[in-house]
Amino acid sequence: MIDAKQVLHVARLSRLELEPGEVEQMATELSSILGHIEQISKLDLDGVEPTMHVVPIDGGLRDDEPEPSLPIEVALSQAPKANAEGFIVPSPQA
């Protein structure tokens, strides 16, 4: 159903790293779950609209009025690395 190569591809898309031993186990577990899930492909769903949200949402946006927000130092206070102005991350070019 889903093999080691696909698992590695999905792991990369997911920004997850798997140990060599985890790849086979993940393939087995995902295949077992997908095997159960695939029963829905047998249903006749022609012409059935998808449901994204069960409650009607009017898409209402707030008025574009400035409201008080977190001070910068508070917003940054939980970051693993930050300076006075922003979050610090390794350079994407490194």
Binding site: I40, L43, P50, T51, M52
Partner: peptide, 14 residues
């Protein structure tokens, strides 16, 4: 095949 189908099943169960 997965997400779209599952949302249609959601319509059916509702």
């Amino acid at each position: 095949a997965y997400y779209g189908t599952a949302q249609r099943v959601r319509t059916k169960i509702a």
